Structure formats: structure tokens, C-alpha cells
Simulated assay, not measured.
Amino acid sequence: MTAAIESGRVRSADELAVLLLTVDRDGDPQLLADAEQLLLQASPRLWLMLDVAIRPAWRQARRWSGTAVQRLVQGESSPLGLTVAACHPDGHVREAAVARLTGPPDPGAVAGLGETGSADDAGLVAAWLEHPRPRARAEAVRALRRLGGVDPERLFGMLTDPSGAVTRQITVALRPSVSRLDLPRLRRLLSTSNPQHTRMAAYRLLHERDTWTRLLTDLELANDPSPLMRHRARGDITTWLAREAATTYSKPRGSTADALAEQLRAAQDALGPDRARLLRFHLGLGPSSVRTSPRSHDVSLRDSAVRSS
């Protein structure tokens, strides 16, 4: 058959293209090995003819085309499958197949797919979340957000990525679904045992969740050993008091109010008396929720004694 192809008879090139797709679809190990050996021995002329012939063969095999793309996305394609996918009529599929054959794509290629691709390409991009280069992982997250292919659970697991550039993109991608994220799991990422960029990513997401979660997180971090974290938390409390407190008409209740009161007692020295008093007022917490210093306690006793005398 190779001789027939190389003789220039297009019909034979078309037949070989269909045969290769069929072998890839059926997955018979021996036929796969034979087909791969044939291609390894093929001349440049045969490769050029196959590149032309395989594309219309893909168009005629639409059902298998979809399955083959899924295999490609899941990293389950055989070498033959990658080879015929590299001749797919969809340019994004071709790029992904070539990337699998030659190694991970350049970050620029990942970014380009995010700019020019469609929602159908999200599966291809998701495979690059494990790219060895941080910039490419960050571009993959950005591309998924643009293509509408964000998987919150998978990205949540990547908040511990060693690169801050990646976690920043993940934070942006997860904001629309922050209310569905596992709150205890997210709060654990604030632990000082985690890197700074992981803690900051968790802080930003907690900040977006709701008002009481935001303030509770700020209070917990008001005495944080990291200057960046504690200054960010204290500054956010100041911002809330100045710009949002007056129009926050609800009040925390039950265990939420108790947790805020407890954290306010722990953070009042860091906040100072004015901010602590204002925060207590806007949260609807009674004076008893704030610890009294020994000196002020002595003064209160003395004033009480004067009034009773």
C-alpha cells in the first residue's frame, strides 16, 4: 500500500487515511504497532499526502472525532492517535496534538488559545493546568476563565500551587463561585504554615464571600505575624468602617456574632480604642464583648464607690 500511495494515486492516500483513523478507533495493539511502524518508515512525500487526506477523513467521522478529542484532552491518545489528531481540521486540536507529541506548549500558545478559542476548547486548555512552567499554568487558568470552562473544584485544589502568579489567576477565576467553596477548607489555607501567596489567595476569596466572613477574617489576621497580612486586614477594617458600615443594615446573629465578639476582644489592642468601639457599634455587639483593661476596671470601681458614698 505504501508503494501505491507514493505513486501519486490520491485514492490510495484517502484509503490509508481512513484506515489509520479506523485503527486508532479500534485500538488493536498489533494494528496500532503496525500502523506506527509504517508511518515511521514513510517518506516526506507520503507524509504530505496524508496531511491532506486525513482532514476530510476526520470530517466524515464526526462521532469518532469527538471521542478522539476527549482522549486527547484526557491524555489517553496513542502515538498513532496523536499523529492523526495532528492532521485534524480543527486548528486547536492540531496544536494540542503537536504539543503532546513534542512536549508542553509555550505559554504564548496557551494564551493565544484563550484569546482566539471557543468554549469547545476548554477541555484542551484544562490539560495544561499541569504544565511544568508557572507562566503557562497561569495562562491556562486565564484562558479557562475567558472560555467559560472554569472547574471550581479543580482550581480550588490548585490554590497551593508554588507560584503566586498562578494563585492570583485562580483567585480571579474562583470569585464568581466563592459562595460554593468549602469554607473550612478555605480558612485552613490561612494557616501560617502555608506560603504567603497561598494565604493571600485564601484571604481574597474569604473577603469576597460575605460581610461577616470578611470581617471575621480581618479580625483573625489583625495580629498576624506577617506584616503584609496584618496591615491588609487592619486596613480593610478601616475601609469598611469608613465606606460600608453605615449602609450595612443587617447585624450578625448567633454563633456568627459570638465569633466576631471573640475575635474583636483579641484584636482590640491592635485596632485601637476608636476602631474597636466603632466596629462594636456597627456590629451590634454589647460593651461586654470587649475586654476591659485592668486600669479602666480600677477606675470603674473607684467611680462606683464615689457614687455610692
Rank of each mutant, 00 (worst) to 15 (best):
S193Y: 03
P79A: 15
R45E: 13
Q263L: 06
A13W: 07
S255A: 13
A127V: 12
V166N: 07
P152S: 06
R62K: 12
N194L: 06
W240R: 09
L181Y: 10
H92I: 04
T192W: 02
S255I: 08
D210Q: 09
R135A: 13
A109P: 01
W212L: 06
T248Y: 10
Y203C: 03
D224V: 04
V52D: 12
A122H: 03
S65A: 15
G103Y: 10
G164P: 02
L40G: 14
L219W: 06
L31T: 04
D151I: 11
P184M: 06
S193G: 14
R243N: 10
D26V: 13
E208V: 03
T171K: 03
E6A: 11
P287C: 13
L155D: 01
R11P: 01
L19N: 09
T213R: 05
E36Y: 02
A267P: 00
L278T: 10
W58L: 12
R234E: 15
Q30I: 09
R295G: 04
T211P: 01
T292V: 14
Q37V: 03
L129K: 00
R100Q: 14
R185W: 03
A165D: 13
T292Y: 01
M200R: 14
R25S: 11
L279I: 10
L16G: 03
L264G: 00
L16V: 10
